[in-house]
Computed example of a mutant assay.
Amino acid sequence: MSSALVFARKEFFEIFRTWRIVVLPAIVLLFALTGPVLAKYTPELLTAVAGSQLSGLELPTPTVFDAYGQWIKNLSQIGIFAIIIIYAGLVSSERRSGTAILVLTKPLSRATFVIVKAVVNAFYLTALVAIGTLITWGVSALMFGEAPGAALWSSAAVWLVLALVYLSLMTLFSVLIRSSAGASGAGLGAFLVLSVAGLWMPAADYSPAGLPSRAATLAAGVATEPLTWPMVISLLACAAVVGLAAMIFRRQEL
């Protein structure tokens, strides 16, 4: 078995020994279970709380697409924040603990070290999103009596690409910044930049900045925005950013 596969196996089992195995699944499970329920009963809750203040105001009847939209909205906000915080120390934490030195004394290159960590966690995120989307699909069917799959799964796939973009950025930031807090701050700064850039049409059409809005419109079943270029460029950006992180890590002192 090659050193890269051995390290990938070690990194996979490392997930089960850290808070990543608790926090991310808990967040995904919470959103998957509660999103459709909240979408279904929000009008009734508002009526019960507001009472006479809503007199004469007819609230729209919730649909399964409201549940899908709630799922994507939660992921695009709290889900992204969780990824930023959890992966802020993806590389730097192993440098501080000395684990990186021990691993790199074996026939494992520094570039492989960074790339394997990013790839293993990309598969982990993909599995979590798939499971969460499947649960959302099932709960939505129970709540609304129907659950067309195309809108939900296509929007989840777009959001997953966005999540991989942030995973790539956090891999780079954890190489550049030895402090997890500093890397988290850089990640939140990137979130702010992409959120603002998404308001500018050229950036939304040709960069990851457009993925949140496209995921939302797909979830609503009314997608009309171009999707190919934001997806392709985002995936290429992921590879480029991880490659840059690997190149920088090769030249750094441990």
Rank of each mutant, 00 (worst) to 15 (best):
A4R: 13
A4I: 11
L5K: 02
L5T: 10
K10A: 07
F12H: 04
F16E: 00
R17H: 10
I21M: 12
A26W: 01
I27M: 13
L29I: 05
F31C: 03
A32G: 04
T34P: 11
L38M: 13
Y41R: 10
Y41I: 09
A50G: 00
A50W: 02
G51Y: 01
G51P: 11
Q53D: 06
E58D: 04
T61I: 10
V64Q: 11
D66Y: 09
D66H: 14
I72T: 08
K73I: 03
S76Y: 00
Q77S: 14
G79E: 06
I80C: 09
A82S: 10
Y87H: 14
A88W: 02
V91T: 09
G98T: 02
L102K: 08
L104K: 05
L104F: 03
F113G: 02
V114A: 00
N121A: 07
A122W: 10
A127V: 13
A127D: 07
L128Y: 04
V129D: 01
I135Y: 07
T136V: 09
A141M: 05
A141T: 02
G145R: 05
E146Q: 15
L152T: 08
W153Q: 06
S155T: 13
A156E: 07
L160Q: 11
V161L: 15
L162C: 08
L162S: 10
L176V: 15
L176S: 12
I177D: 08
R178K: 15
S179G: 10
S184W: 05
S184P: 11
L188Q: 06
G189I: 10
G189Y: 09
V193G: 08
G198K: 12
M201R: 15
M201Y: 13
D205E: 14
Y206G: 14
S207C: 07
S207M: 07
L211S: 03
R214G: 04
A215W: 09
A216P: 06
T217H: 12
A219Y: 07
A219C: 07
A219P: 04
P226L: 03
T228H: 04
L235Q: 06
L236P: 11
A239W: 10
A239N: 07
L244P: 00
F249V: 02
